[in-house]
């Protein structure tokens, strides 16, 4: 863990230095970053922090476009088309639907605007459309890792029941993560685990998700583990304590770093989370777009989300979390 942080810090230091030397040569490069979420999404605010820092470092003109409410894909697409029409010098965007954006992305390629996907990619990856690279978490793989990490702490000789909380049914980022977790669980069953699992619509609100998980566990007392598709599942800690569930009795794991999740980890109700390092998802695309524009370098994929965080890592993570970079 410490190594990762060191790496990020040294990378950042390097980039800052680079940015400083290039400060003069940067003219009016215009980059736009787009998402399908609203401004109230803390996670995206971290991406924005990364973007803002990179744009400061490279002296480029950046804008991040949110939608007015979470998950408004149509508005996101329209923002994307408007941006392409503006002839910006580079675009970074999420791709949360395999087909919706294909035409627009092809048009960007025609116009020679470099386009990088961040955070969420086409499920077909590079084959899905003509984007140059993907910077973000391999969502399916990450889901797989969370399930795998959870089972490490559980007893193969006992019957286990895992609840999979699907935050946004039908949105590829959530379906992918839960799909990855499901794949690992099925492999575990084949491997001889006495295990069952079930998926529910767990919603994307700390209070609501917490409620639903606790209500489910009440109705299904044999539940031994919970996989969340994001961080909202951490809201279940409070009601689990009300139900008299002791730390470690129910293993919970999910994604992202937010204070409530770290708190629950310290209290022993969350076993692990995978940080996808949103700061990098904001910083790196700007850096790549800059190099593409300046030196004609090519874009490259970055998997930002393999950082598995367990309770023992919380101390070091919290410091950066408070800075808004994790």
């Amino acid at each position: 863990m410490k190594k990762t942080i060191l790496k990020i810090c040294s990378a950042a230091a390097f980039i800052v230095g680079l940015g400083a030397t290039n400060a003069f040569s940067a003219d009016d490069l215009k980059f736009t970053v787009l998402t399908q979420t609203g401004i109230d999404n803390t996670f995206w605010q971290t991406i924005k922090r990364g973007m803002d820092d990179a744009c400061e470092d490279y002296q480029v003109d950046c804008q991040m476009l949110f939608t007015s409410e979470n998950g408004n894909l149509q508005m996101h697409l329209q923002n994307l088309e408007t941006t392409i029409g503006q002839d910006v010098d580079g675009i970074a965007t999420v791709i949360v639907d395999d087909n919706l954006y294909d035409e627009a992305i092809a048009r960007a390629a025609e116009k020679g605007i470099p386009l990088i996907t961040i955070n969420v990619d086409d499920t077909e990856g590079a084959d899905g459309n003509s984007r140059l690279a993907f910077i973000g978490q391999d969502l399916f793989q990450a889901g797989y890792e969370v399930a795998k990490g959870l089972l490490v702490g559980m007893d193969k000789s006992q019957p286990q029941h895992v609840l999979l909380g699907l935050a946004r049914p039908g949105e590829s980022w959530a379906e992918d993560r839960i799909g990855g977790a499901r794949l690992y669980l099925d492999e575990a069953i084949a491997d001889g685990w006495n295990l069952t699992h079930e998926t529910i619509d767990s919603a994307n609100d700390i209070s609501v998700t917490g409620q639903r998980i606790c209500q489910y566990i009440l109705g299904n007392r044999k539940t031994t583990a919970v996989v969340g598709s994001a961080f909202w599942f951490a809201g279940a800690g409070e009601c689990l304590r009300d139900m008299g569930v002791k730390p470690g009795e129910i293993h919970m794991g999910g994604f992202d770093l937010v204070p409530i999740l770290l708190d629950e980890m310290k209290l022993g109700y969350v076993d692990l989370t995978i940080d996808q390092q949103p700061y990098l998802q904001g910083y790196l695309p700007i850096q790549q777009l800059y190099f593409i524009n300046k030196f004609g370098l090519s874009a490259f994929d970055v998997n930002t989300g393999k950082a598995l965080i367990r309770p023992e890592d919380v101390g070091s993570v919290e410091k950066y979390s408070a800075m808004g970079v994790r």
Partner: peptide, 12 residues
């Protein structure tokens, strides 16, 4: 109650 504040709370 949940001892956390997120800007998206109360949506809907």
């Amino acid at each position: 109650r949940i001892k956390a504040i997120v800007p998206s709370m109360g949506t809907g």
